[in-house]
Design a protein around this nucleic acid. Structure first.
Length: 402
RNA sequence: GGGCGCGUACCGAAGUGGCCAAACGGGGCAGACUGUAAAUCUGCUGGCUUAACGCCUCCGUAGGUUCGAAUCCUACCGCGCCCA
C-alpha cells in the first residue's frame, strides 16, 4: 500500500463523515504539508475526552507532517449571541477570552503537538474586525437563504415557529470566512459542526479557492452511556484529572460503551479491539481495565496508568478495602478536646453535608473507623493518635487530633 | 399595546384549602451481590435535635383571606406562547 493510501486509512478511522474522501486523497497526494483547521469557542475551557476525539484526529494529522491551525473565536465571543437559547454564547470581555484561550491551549496541548511549526494559533478578530459593512454584504451575497434554512437547527425552529435572529445566519458565514482567510485544506469538527464546516467549502469555492475537506467526528457519549459527554451533565472525564480519578471513571462506564470508547479514544488496531471485546477471549473486566490504562497512559504515561490500575484493583476489586496511595490526612482539632460525636466528625472532614446526611450514612452501615463498622449514630469517638475513617467505598482519610 | 399560560426539592414532574417535608421518574449517595465505581436487587435522598410519630425552614418574591395555604386573593419579579 502506498503511503497516501495508508495515511488515508489511518485518517479515516473513527470518522463519521468525510466531504470528500476523494478530495482528501488528492490533497495527500500533493505531498504538501496540509493546513488542518479546528475552531474553538473560548467559552468552555474545561477540555474533556469528548473534545479529545477531535483533538486526537488533529494530532494524527500533525504526526503525519501536517500543520494544525487552531482558530480562537474571540470575535464571536465578544459579540455574543442574541438568541438566548439553542446556542447560548455569553458575551465575554477581552481578559476572559485571553484567559480561556490560554487554558484551552494548555489543555489541548496534552493531546496536540505544540512544538513550533506544528501548530498555528490564530484569533479570528484579526480579520473579522477589519471587515467593512460592504465586505460583509459581499459575503452574505454568496449564500442563499435557502441554504441557510437547510441547516437542521434552523429548519426545526422554522417548523416550530420559534425565533431565529437574523444575525444567527452570520455565524456560519463568519466561521466559513475563517477558512477562506487561513486557507485551510481540511477542517475538523464534531458532527454538530457539519453545516458550518461545509459552509466553509461553499465560501471558499466562491472565492475561487480550493475547497477545504471537511471531516466530522462522532460525538462522544458520556460516562452514563446515554447523553453526550459534557461538563454540565457531569458525565465527563477532564483531560486534567489525576490518573486514579480518570481510571476509576472509565471503569464506571457501562460495558456496552467500551467498544465505542476503544474506537474513538485509543489507537489500538481494530483486530486487537475485536479480540479484547470478545468475552470468550478477554474477560469484560479486563477489557475495561485495558481501556482505562490505554486512556490514562495518553495523559499520564505508562507508569501513571499502571499505578492507577493497580490502585483501583487494590481498593475496589474483590471486596477492595485497600487505601489510596495519596491518602489524605485531615486534622480535626475538636478531637483534642476529648470524645466527639461520630456524626460531627463525619461532617468535620467534609464527608457529609449535614448531620442528617451523616446519620443516614451511619445507619446504612457505610461508615468505619479503623475498620470497625460504626452503626450507632450516637457513638462518640476519641482518637488518641490517628485513625482511618471511611465513608462508603470511595471516601477515606486519615484523621488526626492535631 | 392586547390575550392566555407557567414558575414545586439536584433535574423533570404530580399535587388545586387540613391526611404535604410534599406522589412518581431521573440523578446522587449507601448497602448486598459481583467481574469494576458495570449489571441487578434493597434502602436513603430539606435541616436541627434531649431521636421524637418533637421542632424549624420550604413549593418564584412580598403582602392578604382563613382556625389552617404549595393550594384562594392582590401586587411584583421572571419565563413562555398567541394576536397587533
Amino acid at each position: 500500500m502506498s503511503d497516501v493510501e495508508s495515511h488515508l486509512q489511518q485518517l479515516s478511522r473513527g470518522v463519521e463523515a468525510i466531504y470528500s474522501l476523494e478530495e482528501l486523497r488528492k490533497k495527500l497526494q500533493s505531498g504538501k504539508a496540509l493546513r488542518i483547521k479546528l475552531g474553538m469557542d473560548p467559552t468552555a475551557p474545561d477540555i474533556h475526552l469528548g473534545h479529545s476525539v477531535v483533538l486526537r484526529k488533529l494530532r494524527q494529522f500533525q504526526d503525519l507532517g501536517h500543520t494544525a491551525v487552531l482558530i480562537i473565536g474571540d470575535y464571536t465571543a465578544r459579540i455574543g449571541d442574541p438568541t438566548g437559547r439553542d446556542t447560548t454564547r455569553p458575551v465575554l470581555d477581552e481578559a476572559a477570552i485571553l484567559r480561556n484561550a490560554r487554558t484551552y491551549l494548555e489543555q489541548a496541548g496534552r493531546v496536540l503537538d505544540t512544538s513550533p511549526g506544528k501548530i498555528e494559533v490564530r484569533h479570528n478578530s484579526e480579520w473579522l474586525s477589519k471587515l467593512s459593512f460592504a465586505d460583509v454584504l459581499r459575503l452574505t451575497g454568496m449564500v442563499t437563504v435557502q441554504q441557510m434554512l437547510h441547516r437542521e437547527n434552523f429548519k426545526l425552529r422554522m417548523e416550530q415557529q420559534r425565533e431565529i435572529v437574523l444575525s444567527e445566519f452570520m455565524y456560519p458565514i463568519m466561521q466559513a470566512y475563517d477558512s477562506v482567510v487561513i486557507k485551510s485544506d481540511v477542517e475538523l469538527g464534531g458532527t454538530d459542526q457539519t453545516f458550518n464546516n461545509l459552509m466553509g467549502r461553499e465560501l471558499m469555492s466562491k472565492h475561487d479557492m480550493a475547497k477545504q475537506v471537511v471531516m466530522v467526528m462522532p460525538i462522544l457519549v458520556g460516562l452514563d452511556g446515554h447523553e453526550k459527554m459534557s461538563k454540565s451533565k457531569g458525565n465527563y472525564v477532564a483531560v486534567t484529572e489525576p490518573p486514579a480519578e480518570m481510571f476509576g471513571k472509565i471503569m464506571s462506564i457501562p460495558d456496552a460503551l467500551m467498544s465505542n470508547y476503544f474506537q474513538l479514544l485509543t489507537a489500538l488496531p481494530p483486530e486487537r479491539i475485536t479480540s479484547i471485546l470478545d468475552s470468550s477471549q478477554t474477560h469484560p473486566r479486563d477489557a475495561k481495565d485495558i481501556l482505562g490504562r490505554v486512556i490514562v497512559e495518553e495523559f499520564h504515561g505508562r507508569e501513571g496508568a499502571e499505578l492507577a490500575s493497580a490502585e483501583f484493583r487494590r481498593r475496589f476489586s474483590q471486596g477492595g478495602g485497600g487505601l489510596p496511595t495519596d491518602l489524605e490526612t485531615k486534622v480535626v482539632p475538636a478531637l483534642a478536646q476529648g470524645a466527639m460525636g461520630m456524626l460531627d466528625l463525619i461532617c468535620a472532614v467534609g464527608f457529609a453535608t449535614s448531620k442528617s446526611d451523616a446519620r443516614r450514612l451511619v445507619e446504612q452501615g457505610g461508615v468505619t473507623l479503623d475498620d470497625q463498622k460504626i452503626t450507632d449514630p450516637k457513638a462518640t469517638v476519641s482518637v488518641a493518635g490517628e485513625g482511618i475513617l471511611r465513608v462508603g467505598k470511595r471516601r477515606v482519610c486519615k484523621i488526626k487530633a492535631s
